[in-house]
Design a protein around this nucleic acid. Structure first.
Lengths: 201, 201
DNA sequence: AATAGGTTTAACCATATGGTTAACAAATGT
DNA sequence: ACATTTGTTAACCATATGGTTAAACCTATT
């Protein structure tokens, strides 16, 4: 039997879908069991409690996101190249996982201490290299002076917010789903241009 | 008796706090009643159901946010001035209502159709004037070419995201609450500079 | 074939939860 | 003063929900 067909894995897949779309409070154990096509008791057999199943899902989902962040932080290309690649890659990734950003952000707001458990995990994104790199490029006159933390948050904000705020932005800009998808697609390059215009000397 | 002391108002205030911090699914009617210091039956006497109480709260909260958006859209100052004022005002406003952005964003994601009820309300933000203005300033050579919708989303993103993603950003940038507050405060001017650097010809 | 181990299910349990009711109190009008 | 409406409470109800249990069901080992 393949690993993907194991009951434990079926449960995790079903739980990922339900928890991501409805959140911890909105999710129902019975609904997860139904989606997995198994008896509700199996959820507790493999994961003990709703809380532990949720944490397994959260860590799994976060481990999808972390590499996306690390990609911009830990390679040796210039800041300009990183911004360009990150914007394109991150947007493409999020178009495949539309519930992911809101899930992460919302659950971290619901329980601020939960991030502590993630920080201990290997692969938790580290900004040190990025900070040094930005400082170096500012010194060498390639970039205008800017606090690396501020720049990093700006990059995240411009890339993530369109997924978090989709319903609001759709209404404000009067777009339907198709034109919103086109809007997001064009951001793959627009956002990088916007950032680079701002910081390039 | 002052309006603020009426039972109906006590309920709405308590419900605003509970719904904003815990969301529709996480909120408990009993907890709202306890916070308001009244009997649970009163919630149903004045608001019929949890859903209707929630909608009353949501509309009330959204009506706090809408003027903030309208302020950037509907006055006659230049785009540069608007961005500067909006960034400072919006950030100051959000520091006073820290749960508001996540509440709005998350509940709209939970129920995408709900925004339709808001659009009908008077005062729902309208972008037309802003779009014309950006187009005019691009034509006159004041601004670099940019799609007004993209610029608008960028402004929103840079201003709202630091409040939505606070727990995540705190962990990534290794800031405590005090240094995060300072970080946000410096964004009151940093964000405007960042945007203007990018779009000014 | 018998045994032992893990796996799965239906039925069950205790509690939480949104909502209702009937009696009571406090205003309000006549 | 009396009646009527409005506001308030404690007790109650039906259902949903996370979790448990005991028995049944494989499946591999002896």
């Amino acid at each position: 039997m393949k690993k993907e067909d194991s009951t434990e894995h079926l449960i995790l897949d079903a739980a990922k879908e339900i928890f991501q779309s409805k959140g911890m409070d909105g999710a129902r154990m019975q609904e997860i069991a139904d989606k997995a096509g198994i008896n509700k008791a199996m959820l507790h057999y493999y994961y003990r409690s709703k809380q532990l199943l949720f944490e397994a899902v959260f860590k799994n989902v976060f481990s999808l996101l972390a590499p996306q962040l690390n990609s911009i932080l830990n390679d040796d290309s210039s800041v300009e190249t990183k911004v360009t690649n990150f914007t394109a890659d991150y947007t493409a990734f999020m178009m495949k996982h539309p519930y992911l950003p809101n899930f992460i952000i919302n659950e971290l707001n619901r329980n601020e201490d939960f991030i502590l458990k993630l920080q201990e995990q290997t692969g938790f994104p580290n900004l040190e290299k990025f900070k040094v790199q930005v400082a170096t490029e500012i010194n060498s006159g390639t970039l205008k002076p800017i606090d690396p933390d501020q720049l990093f948050v700006n990059i995240l904000a411009l890339n993530i917010f369109p997924f978090l705020g989709k319903p609001l932005i759709k209404a404000l800009t009067k777009k339907d789903d198709a034109s919103y998808a086109a809007f997001i697609t064009s951001r793959k390059t627009e956002v990088a241009t916007f950032i680079i215009n701002s910081i390039k000397m």
